[in-house]
Design a protein around this nucleic acid. Structure first.
Lengths: 339, 339
DNA sequence: ATGAAAGCGCTAACAC
DNA sequence: GTGTTAGCGCTTTCAT
C-alpha cells in the first residue's frame, strides 16, 4: 500500500522516530541523517497519513467552513478567501453546506468536530445560539462569519452592516430621493444591521421613517429575485410610490428592477435601485446595478487568519470582532447612463 | 475532553467492543445491552472520533471533490449535487479548489489521499494525464467530472458536449442563420466536444465550415465576459460579419452580447447569441440568454453515486462513462421577445 | 543526536 | 452474545 514511516526507517537503517522528526523539522537530528531521510522521502513520494498524525497529535491541520449555501456567490467567494489563506499555512479546508437549514448546520458542526477540525468557521443560518452548545463545549475555537448571533459571545468577521445600510441610503438621499423604500430580511444580524443603517441615514437627513416603505421578507438568500419582484410589486401598490429602494442583496435588487421595468417604470429615473453584496453579475445586468461591496474574499481571508491565531494561542482571550468597511459602487441603477 | 467508547463502556460495565458494535449496528449484541448503550450514547452526546475510526478501519467515510474554481457557479452547483448525494449515505464531502492551476490540483490530490478519502471526484484543469500518476498508483477509486482526459482510462460523468454543440448550432440554423460563428476554448475535452458538435451540425445541414468564424481563446472559465467581448469584437472585423454565434459558456456569451450592443447591433435581430451552461444569471441579463442546460446538480449527484458504487465493489471493473443529455433553453438572445 | 516504549481512539479477528 | 488481543501509522516522552 502506501509508504509508511516504518518503510523509510527500515530502508535507511534508522529508527522510525528519527524519520518522523525530520518530517516535522525537529532540530535534534544530524545533518547527514536528515539529508538521507529527505532524499528517500522524495524518492518514494512519501506522504504522512494525516489520520494517524491527527490521532496521535490531537491536531488535524484542518479547518472546517460551514456556509448556508454554496451556490450563492457570496459564500463561494468567502470560501475562496478562506482557502487561499489556509493554503499558505498548509492547513486544509473542509467545506460543508447547511442548505439554509439550521438542523443540517448543527449536524455539520458535529460532523466536523468528529473529524477533528482544529477550528471552525461558520456563516450560520441559525437564529439562536442554542445550536452552538456542543461546539462551545468542545472547546474547539470558532469564528462566525458574515452573520452574527447576538447571544453568542464569539469571534466574528463580517461586514459593518449598519454602515452598509447607511451608505446605500445616503447615496439615494444625495441623489435627491425622498421616498426611499427598503426591502429587507428578517432574524439574521445582517438584515437587522442594514435596516438600522437605513433608519440612521434617514434620521440624519431629517427624513421621517415610514413603516409602509419597509418590506420585510424571508428567504432572500435563496429566492431573492422572485421575492424582490413580489416585494417591489407590493411597494408599488402604495398610494404614493417610492422613488428609490435599497434592497437587502443584489438578487433582491434584480427582482425589484424586473418588477419596475415590467410596470413601465424607468430605472433610475422613476425609481433608483441599490443592492448589497456587489456580486460579479451586478455589472452584466439589464440595468447595471449599484451595490455595496463587501470585500467578500478578504473577509474569508481574515476569518481564516483569525482562526489560525486562535489555534495558536494557548489561553482563551476575549472574543474579537472584525468589521470590514463596505464600499459604495455606483452604477446605472442609481446614477443612470454615464456619459 | 470528548466522550470516548471507553467512557461509555466503563459507565455501563460492558466492554468497549460491545459498545463499538452497537454503534456500527452489528447484529451480535443483545437487545437489552444494545438499548442501554444507545441510551447512554444519546445522554452523553457521543460522536465517534472519525480519525481513529478511519485509521483502524481503513475507511474514512469521506469523499474528496476537486474543482477548478468554486466561484464559477457551474462548479458550485456540481458541489451541491455531490454533497446532497453523499449526505444520504452519511458520507462527508471534502472540497478543494485548484484555482485553475494544474500544479495546485496535483497538490490537492495528494492532500486528499493523505487524508484517506475513500474516493475522489475531480473536475480537472490538467491537460494531460501525467498528474494522475500517484492517484492511479494509490488504487483509490476516482471519477472525472465535466472534463475528460482522453489518455486516462477513467470513470467519467459529464455533459455530452458534442450533443450540446450540435444542439446549439442546430438551433441557430433552424432560425435561418447562415454565418454561424463559434467562440470556443482549447485543450480541455468540453471545448473540443462542443466544437465537434458545432462542425457536425454545420455538415449535417450542408453549411460549409469556415475557419475564420471560429475564435479559440483560453481562460474562458475565469474571465469569460472580458474574453467573449474581445473575441466578438474580432469576429465583427470580418468582411462579412456573422449573423449568429455559439459561445463556449454563458459568461463568454454575456461578453459577446456586450460587444454587439456596444457596436449598435441588435440581439438577436442582427446577431443571435447562444451560450452553454444555463447559469442562474442567464435569465436576469440585459438580453435574456439562450443556453444549453447541463443539469449540473444532477451531474454532481450521479458522480457521487458512481463513486460510492466504486467504493462498494471489491474488484475493479471497466471504467464507466455517464453522459448527461443537454437540453436547449431558448430565450430572447436567439428567439427575440416572445409575445 | 538517536531510539525504545507507550498510547491516541478505534476496529478486526478470534476466542469464550 | 460478549470480551480479549492486536494493531492501524503516527507522535510524545523520556532514556541513552
Amino acid at each position: 500500500m502506501a509508504v509508511r514511516l516504518k518503510d523509510i526507517a527500515e530502508d535507511l537503517g534508522v529508527s522510525l522516530v528519527t524519520v518522523s522528526k525530520v518530517l516535522r523539522n525537529k532540530p535534534d537530528v544530524g545533518e547527514l541523517t536528515r539529508n538521507r531521510v529527505l532524499q528517500r522521502v522524495r524518492e518514494l513520494n512519501y506522504r504522512p497519513n494525516m489520520l494517524a498524525r491527527g490521532l496521535a497529535s490531537g491536531k488535524s491541520y484542518t479547518i472546517g467552513l460551514i456556509v448556508p449555501d454554496l451556490v450563492h456567490t457570496f459564500f463561494a467567494e468567502l470560501a475562496k478567501g478562506v482557502s487561499a489563506a489556509l493554503r499558505k499555512e498548509s492547513y486544509q479546508l473542509i467545506l460543508a453546506s447547511a442548505e439554509e437549514e439550521p438542523g443540517l448546520e448543527h449536524e455539520e458542526i458535529e460532523n466536523l468536530l468528529a473529524r477533528g477540525v482544529d477550528a471552525l468557521l461558520i456563516a450560520s443560518c441559525q437564529s439562536s445560539a442554542a445550536g452552538f452548545k456542543s461546539l462551545v463545549a468542545s472547546k474547539v475555537p470558532y469564528v462566525l462569519i458574515d452573520r452574527h448571533l447576538p447571544r453568542l459571545n464569539a469571534c466574528f468577521v463580517g461586514t459593518d452592516d449598519v454602515a452598509a445600510g447607511r451608505m446605500a441610503t445616503e447615496h439615494l438621499i444625495r441623489l435627491g430621493r425622498e421616498r426611499i423604500a427598503h426591502i429587507g430580511g428578517e432574524l439574521i444580524s445582517t438584515s437587522e444591521g442594514r435596516l438600522t443603517g437605513y433608519k440612521e441615514a434617514l434620521a440624519a437627513n431629517h427624513i421621517p421613517f415610514c413603516e409602509e416603505l419597509v418590506a420585510i421578507r424571508s428567504r432572500l438568500e435563496e429566492e431573492g429575485v422572485q421575492i424582490g419582484n413580489n416585494a417591489m410589486s407590493d411597494l408599488l401598490k402604495l398610494k404614493k410610490r417610492p422613488d428609490a429602494v435599497f434592497c437587502y442583496n443584489d438578487l433582491t435588487a434584480v427582482g425589484a428592477i424586473r418588477c419596475l421595468l415590467a410596470s413601465k417604470l424607468r430605472v433610475p429615473e422613476d425609481v433608483a435601485v441599490i443592492g448589497c453584496g456587489n456580486l460579479r453579475l451586478s455589472s452584466y445586468l439589464e440595468v447595471p446595478l449599484s451595490s455595496i461591496d463587501q470585500s467578500t474574499q478578504k473577509q474569508g481571508e481574515q476569518a481564516a487568519t483569525l482562526a489560525l491565531s486562535l489555534i495558536a494561542q494557548k489561553h482563551k482571550q476575549k472574543a474579537k470582532h472584525l468589521l470590514i468597511e463596505p464600499k459604495l459602487i455606483a452604477r446605472n441603477s442609481t446614477i443612470g447612463r454615464t456619459v
